[in-house]
Amino acid sequence: MNVIETDALTKTYNGKGGISDVSLSIGEGTIYGFLGPNGSGKSTFVRTMLGLLKPTSGRGFILGEPIGTIRSREQVGYLPELFRYPDWLTGRQLLESHAELCRIPVRERRKRIDEVVDLVGMTGRDGGRISGFSKGMSQRIGLACAILNDPKVVFLDEPTSALDPIGRKDVRDLMLYLRDRGKTVFLNSHLLHEVESVCDHVSIVHEGDMIVQGLWRDLMQIEAQVEVVTDHPADVPWPPCVTHVRKIKQEGPRMRWLVQFERESDVPEMIHGLSSARIAVYEVKPIIPHLEDVFLHWVNRKKESAYVGDQ
């Protein structure tokens, strides 16, 4: 069963902004990245899924239950982007209040709170007032809240925005820990490297539209590039599968090239073509595209198709 499912889910504000026409299916035990720049509608989508916003159109389900119903939120955790907690409570009192709302049995509360406090690295600091917490500590206690009820689905909206590098690594480890325990993590982020480092599946959203979704490694396959080192003939007869070639630098008697293809599967054909032409190949090194390049590739492709459509 899909843990999260939406069908053309749309939330706009008087016809403007928000996010439109999101259809996705997310299975169990996945870390799903919802990637997009600030203001692209990521938080609107999550808040709509959690019933905080009423959808303009479309449908959404969490664990098979329609969004907006109490049942759809029973096994869900959430860390909001704007994590604000009552500053008159202590961290532990906050967790106790949430435990009560989640109907965690009284005799289990203390143990469970100790567990999550430990998981987010707040042991010994949870007794302080939230008003005295740093942003990082608030975000950590928010994470503890999000996983307190041992949810099957956790929505994390920019979960590392206030954390230092160690904190960011802790959160990444926590996400992987949750996934390994069969939980589904829906990660909202504008940080490409954060999404890349933990997510299996990714959606890219931009200006309220979902541009593309799929396995992260598939989305990365944009115009494959390799660096090739050959001997230094006056002219290399590049096979037709090569779409673009650029000299990088001369290394003694050899030349380093940047070679571009439409598909990664064209690389063996190029090597075969060069060998047939008796060009010595000393090195073929795949170039992993920059994350920014991947993101811009998909955004530009969407814009181009929209432009063609307008014509």
Partner: peptide, 13 residues
Amino acid sequence: SHQIDTWLMRPIS
């Protein structure tokens, strides 16, 4: 203040 978000996402009406 958005404090309400984390309360309302709990299973309460």
